[in-house]
């Protein structure tokens, strides 16, 4: 239990900081009450960051989950080379995120392969390049995020799929159930706990998206990719306003908490994940 020290001490310390005007290089912070929190909600940049972060979460999780589930169903079949496929889909999630973000910066650029491909297919591309148009920058990063992360959740789904008793399917087949019926009445219910876990993990992770933004756009253009954690980083470690940044982090934290609780409630699983 003593090891919790490493988590609890920093946590409480930063909570205290969020009520001060602590700037990193000034060792004597003043207590200023909830002033930081009040300032936050009149800070247009923070509100933009909140909006973008929510968009990011709402726009990636459904896709990641569905793609992971869909492909998991396929590679769970008896198909040749299935180990190879599984490893292939898993590969992005074990590659360095920084390197992936760098590769995608090149892919997305105006003279990159993606623009080239779109030209071939006759799809119009944004004039300033994917990452530098206010309308496409965030979706581009979202697309990348789905690409990187679905493999990991696919593996989790695969595991859950193995757990479904085969007899159920056999029984269903005997009674003449269609593929869709089997999926609807056997597979899905069995996958529910895992789906909740996946959505939960993904929510917590997506709300804290940072590296991609840091490497690819630094919040630009015109703050269209500014996320909360990137703001926390800019304010805390670039501008030294650690008190303010801590307040930001705590607001984000409340939002994530509410979301997670809501998800558990919606899925009707207030008590335990595997229940």
């Amino acid at each position: 239990m003593t090891l919790i020290l490493f988590w609890l001490f920093p946590l409480i310390y930063s909570l205290y900081l969020s009520f001060t005007d602590y700037t990193v290089l000034n060792p004597y912070p003043n207590f200023i009450g909830v002033q930081n929190y009040l300032n936050l909600f009149s800070d247009p940049d923070f509100l933009t960051a909140l909006k973008n972060t929510s968009l990011f979460v709402a726009g990636t999780i459904p896709f990641t989950t569905i793609i992971a589930l869909f492909l998991a169903l396929i590679v769970n079949q008896k198909i040749p080379l299935k180990d190879f496929f599984r490893a292939g889909f898993f590969l992005p999630s074990i590659t360095s995120m920084v390197v992936i973000a760098l590769i995608f910066t090149n892919l997305y650029s105006k003279d990159g392969y993606l623009t080239f491909l779109c030209h071939l297919l006759g799809i119009p591309t944004p004039e300033k390049g994917f990452l530098f148009s206010t309308s496409t920058a965030l979706p581009s990063i979202m697309l990348m995020d789905v690409w990187v992360s679905f493999g990991y959740y696919l593996i989790l789904y695969l595991a859950a799929l193995q757990a479904i008793p085969q007899e159920l399917y056999e029984a269903a087949e005997i009674s003449g159930a269609s593929f869709w019926q089997k999926f609807r009445y056997i597979t899905l219910p069995y996958l529910r706990p895992m789906t909740l876990l996946i959505v939960l993990l993904n929510t917590i992770r997506s709300f804290q998206i940072f590296i991609e933004i840091f490497v690819m756009t630094k919040g630009g253009p015109l703050n269209s990719t500014l996320t909360v954690v990137y703001s926390v980083y800019e304010n805390g470690l670039v501008r030294f306003q650690m008190g303010y940044a801590s307040a930001m982090a705590y607001v984000l934290f409340f939002i994530i908490m509410i979301f997670s609780l809501l998800q558990m409630k919606v899925f009707g699983l207030g008590k335990g994940v595997e229940e």
Binding site: K110, G129, F132, T217, K218, G220, L222
Partner: peptide, 17 residues
């Protein structure tokens, strides 16, 4: 000549700092 992927000037886009 952007259609040939040849560009006149290399301009920094919205790149913070």
């Amino acid at each position: 000549q952007p259609e040939k992927q040849i560009y006149g000037f290399g301009a920094n886009a919205a790149e913070r700092h």
